[in-house]
Simulated scan of single mutants.
Amino acid sequence: MMIKTTLAAATLLALTACASNMGAPAMYSQAMLPDSMQVPAGHRVAMETVGVGEITYECRADKDMAGKYAWVFAGPDAKLMSRGGQQLGKYYGPPATWEAMDGSKITGKQLAVSPGGDGNIPLQFVQANPAMGVGAMSGVTYIQRVKTRGGVAPASACGMANVGAKQIVNYQADYIFWKAA
């Protein structure tokens, strides 16, 4: 009986250890990103989020080429979610603004973009401006938009007949927030 109890306890302990490791998030790695998209040494990941939402495009006349029209990025509207599905904040604009649930928020300056693959908006690397308010966004130095899915401009016609028309497309992307180490 003692051997069965010990064996059962050891099995339970091993299963518990495996299950607890399954829920642990993997540390974010920049290894697959182009150099221009990588955060400089001396920074650490402060928060990883999954942005799920929409991007609005507007049909506009090209200011530099008479008679040319195009769908132009008008702004995002997304929820910033934890990997577990809890809302941590929101992303909206213009200007592009990342806001935590505690009210702290940041804007930033785009430093680089890189292709996100067919049908996906580009990856993006942003240097954060100082945070407004105190909270989760305080001290954020860089934001990376990676693992993009969807969000590209509509394929429908944009011309003189529908200038000012807006189209909304769904997208998803991971937003990685960095702070100085």
Rank of each mutant, 00 (worst) to 15 (best):
Met1Gln: 10
Met1Asp: 11
Met2Trp: 04
Lys4Gln: 12
Thr5Glu: 07
Thr5Asp: 10
Thr6Phe: 12
Thr6Glu: 11
Ala8Cys: 07
Ala9Pro: 04
Ala10Ile: 08
Thr11Ser: 14
Cys18His: 13
Cys18Met: 12
Cys18Arg: 14
Asn21Met: 11
Ala24Ile: 14
Pro25Ser: 11
Ser29Asp: 15
Ser29Thr: 14
Leu33Tyr: 10
Pro34Ser: 09
Pro34Phe: 08
Pro34His: 03
Gln38Tyr: 02
Val39Arg: 07
Pro40Ser: 07
Val45Thr: 02
Val45Pro: 02
Ala46Gly: 08
Met47Ile: 14
Thr49Leu: 04
Val52Pro: 01
Ile55Val: 15
Thr56Glu: 13
Cys59Leu: 03
Arg60Thr: 11
Lys63Phe: 03
Lys63Leu: 05
Gly67Trp: 08
Gly67Val: 10
Tyr69Gly: 00
Ala70Glu: 13
Val72Thr: 14
Ala74Gln: 08
Gly75His: 08
Gly75Tyr: 04
Ala78Val: 13
Lys79Met: 09
Leu80His: 00
Met81Gln: 06
Met81Lys: 01
Ser82Thr: 06
Ser82Phe: 07
Arg83Lys: 15
Gly84Met: 10
Gly84Ala: 14
Leu88Met: 15
Lys90Arg: 14
Tyr91Phe: 13
Tyr91His: 15
Tyr92Trp: 05
Pro94Thr: 11
Pro94Trp: 03
Thr97Ser: 05
Glu99Leu: 03
Ala100Leu: 04
Met101Gly: 15
Gly103Ser: 14
Gly103Gln: 03
Ser104Ile: 06
Lys105Ser: 10
Lys105Glu: 09
Thr107Val: 04
Leu111Ile: 10
Leu111Val: 09
Ala112Arg: 01
Val113Trp: 06
Val113Ile: 14
Ser114Ile: 00
Gly117Ala: 04
Ile121Val: 15
Pro122Ile: 00
Leu123Ala: 06
Phe125Asn: 04
Val126Cys: 02
Gln127Thr: 06
Asn129Cys: 03
Pro130Ala: 01
Val134Asp: 07
Val134Cys: 01
Gly135Phe: 05
Ala136Glu: 11
Ser138Lys: 00
Gly139Ser: 06
Val140Cys: 04
Ile143Cys: 02
Gln144Lys: 02
Lys147Ile: 00
Arg149Trp: 00
Gly150Leu: 07
Gly151Ile: 06
Gly151Val: 05
Pro154Val: 03
Pro154Glu: 01
Gly159Ala: 08
Met160Asp: 13
Ala161Gln: 09
Asn162His: 02
Gly164Lys: 03
Ala165Thr: 12
Lys166Gly: 06
Gln167His: 12
Asn170Thr: 15
Asn170Phe: 10
Tyr171Gly: 05
Tyr171Asp: 04
Asp174Met: 13
Trp178Val: 00
Lys179Met: 07
Ala180Phe: 01
